[in-house]
């Protein structure tokens, strides 16, 4: 923390007499300004929080269903009945699928760029991956709906045929691949760049001595990575994954274009159906009346808490490892 030192300097008496008066006034104004914007930020945040909880509380007080367990979302009807069970399930499941696919692959790519790729290839690759992190999600959405979904039909049949006995991959309902599984794959593709670029940064920071020592002992490249790179990078990879997870949880447009939503919980992830918080907000918002919107805000609040939890966990892990900062990610 650099802030400790300047704080101490702050109290030191000014050395020069000439610049004193203007300096003091300027100091006061500037300090006031910066403090003011800090406070302004707090005020904005507080008013959003108050607004959210207020609107959500209106919705919750009139809900005829159970907010946590009802398998339905009929908030604009009278009486309103809605619950987040399906949304919570869908959000968590699709994010888990995304993580299960994206993290190993991202670590693989990060290792590829940092340790395996020919040197001429590595730098541009890193660059391209970083650029891909900036592709807007709506574009992933239309690509997913128009290109990925038809392509995945074969894979779905396959999984159903060979892994159908696992229950999870049993496709019991006919239909195109507009399922939570497809959403998971799309989310995985979307968060790959960010997880990759943060992991790569960590892998590049592994002390060279460790690697060279292992090499000198005759270790193969894999043994070097297993013994020196991965242990060093573990917490970095975890926090990178958390950042990716945070993004997957709140993704709206990509999910809304790909998923065929329904209010059923099903462990068969290849079946079309399910829903996520953000997708539900986007899909229902248009037709909702005032009260229906309040109900959607209540679900937004839950999503907000979920994201907060994940981001908080990531920050904790990052904070524990001081030499790696993920703030720019």
């Amino acid at each position: 923390m650099a802030s400790t030192t300047p704080t101490r300097i702050d109290t030191a008496p000014p050395v020069s007499k000439s610049g004193r008066s203007t300096g003091r006034a300027g100091d006061k104004i500037f300090a006031g300004l910066s403090k003011g914007s800090g406070i302004l930020l707090l005020v904005i945040m507080a008013s959003i929080a108050v607004f959210l909880t207020y609107r959500a509380s209106i919705a919750l007080s009139k809900n005829e269903g159970n907010f946590l367990t009802t398998f339905d979302w009929n908030a604009s009807a009278t009486p309103p009945v809605f619950g987040i069970a399906v949304l919570l399930f869908g959000t968590v499941v699709s994010s888990i699928i995304a993580m299960a696919i994206a993290v190993p692959i991202a670590v693989g790519i990060a290792l590829f760029i940092s340790h395996y790729a020919p040197r001429k290839l590595a730098a541009p690759l890193a660059y391209v991956v970083d650029l891909l992190a900036a592709v807007p999600s709506i574009i992933y959405g239309i690509w997913g709906a128009l290109f990925l979904v038809p392509q995945l039909a074969g894979l779905n049949l396959w999984l159903d045929e060979y892994l159908g006995w696992t229950y999870v991959f049993d496709k019991t309902q006919v239909g195109v691949a507009r399922s939570l599984f497809t959403v998971g794959i799309l989310l995985a593709i979307m968060i790959l760049p960010i997880v990759t670029s943060v992991s790569r940064e960590v892998f590049l920071q592994v002390p060279r001595m460790n690697e060279e020592a292992a090499l000198a002992l005759g270790a193969t490249r894999w043994e070097v990575i297993r013994m020196s790179v991965l242990p060093f990078g573990r917490s970095g990879v975890i926090s990178a994954s958390m950042l990716g997870l945070g993004r997957a949880l709140g993704e709206t447009m990509a999910v809304a274009t790909v998923l065929s939503p329904s209010f059923l919980i099903s462990g068969h992830i290849l079946n079309p159906g399910g829903g996520t918080f953000a997708q539900n907000i986007a899909a229902k918002f248009d037709e909702a009346n005032e009260f229906g919107r309040d109900a959607l805000i209540a679900s937004g609040l839950v999503l907000f808490l979920l994201t907060l939890l994940v981001n908080g966990a990531a920050r904790l892990i990052i904070a524990r490892r001081k030499d790696f900062s993920g703030a720019n990610a």
């Binding site: 604009s76 009807a77 239909g175 507009r178 065929s260 939503p261 329904s262 059923l264 079309p272 899909a283």
Partner: peptide, 13 residues
């Protein structure tokens, strides 16, 4: 109702 009532089938926006 404005909301699709039957279970099953596929939704599109």
């Amino acid at each position: 109702a404005k909301k699709w009532p039957a279970p099953g089938g596929l939704g599109a926006s």
